[in-house]
Nucleic acid binder design. Structure first.
Lengths: 179, 179
DNA sequence: TCGATTTGTTAATCTAGATGAATGTTCCCT
DNA sequence: AGGGAACATTCATCTAGATTAACAAATCGA
């Protein structure tokens, strides 16, 4: 999604790190939030609500950037947990490096373009959450990210869709039956 | 939020128009999607689902930009309706004008910054939709946008929150009782 | 390799919020 | 000013999905 080398050149503080499956890249309550470029592997971000339940905000596989934008933008303590679903190689950097003066205008515009695309995806996510039943959200997810279901346990997909693992199990049975 | 004069200078095709309350600025199915800067008044965007129900995606008052980003980014027909809740003065422009070469780098970076903030708000919206009960979403909305409830009918706020007007009415009664 | 954790499924019961309907109120519009 | 539409509230009923629990299968770690 974003070019690794660009980031490394731009942000002198950027660093590459290797993580094991289940390791945390960020925890809730951290004072400073970074952005994470996934060079290899698979990450997920999620919150834990007042009842202790996890809610997956997003997944990020190779080439994606994952971050707690709310914390970064408004300088709040982080509210998201970010951990690894697979052993991963991650580039840690400051999102603000994209605002730096020594970056070419073309690069910035390119970055702007990517941001717009992600906003458009988020728009779709909100609309789906509000207006579509769980089964439609699931089929949309599978067709939008066909490679992810194979790498992600179903209960996490359920969480991403805003339903319980049991509900997703039932949905999948119904889909299988109707074919 | 964004500077009106900037847009006018940058996009030669940008135009200002006055709309009456209830007039449509965009309808579903349009081939070309524009961005709308609200100089004065109040707009809302929404979809109509397969059962004919409206779901408000966002409101935009003075200084905000409202657009169907999905349609713009992926060159799809528009899926959102956008109409006026008040008589409004609207600047219509091409989002792509922000990518233009004759825009100073500082302006682009400024714009990038605004985009990040809006992404952060969308992150919060998704998290709230997934993890918070309707009453919390309502109180969050009221405290985040205290001026809007006075200008927006409750059934549209309910729609924005993802609940029915009846449910919002009940929530408001409970809040009033508990005080 | 074996116990333990993680994962997925099924079923019974429960609940937040949807639906549908009736009623009153406020706001327009001409 | 007055009649119709839009708005808000209340209540009775319904339902998608949550919750709880029990169990089987797959995976993992030592």
């Amino acid at each position: 999604m974003e070019n690794l080398d660009d980031i490394l050149k731009i942000d002198p503080d950027a660093s590459v790190r290797f993580y094991k499956k289940k390791e945390f890249v960020q925890r809730k309550g951290g004072a400073k939030a970074y952005s994470f470029y996934v060079k290899k592997g698979l990450l997920r971000s999620y919150i834990i609500d007042s009842k202790g339940k996890e809610h997956v905000f997003m997944f990020a596989s190779e080439g994606w950037i994952i971050a707690d934008l709310e914390a970064i933008e408004f300088d709040e303590p982080t509210s998201l947990f970010i951990d690894c679903l697979e052993d991963s190689e991650i580039l840690i950097f400051n999102k603000n490096c994209f605002l730096k003066a020594d970056l070419s205008k073309e690069k910035i515009v390119e970055h702007l373009q990517l941001l717009y695309r992600r906003m458009a995806k988020l728009q779709r996510r909100v609309l789906m959450l509000m207006s579509s039943p769980a089964i439609d959200r699931y089929t949309h997810f599978v067709s939008a990210y066909p490679e992810l279901p194979q790498r992600i346990p179903q209960h996490m997909i359920a969480s991403y869709l805003g339903i319980t693992p049991q509900a997703l199990s039932t949905i999948r049975r119904k889909i299988a039956e109707s074919k």
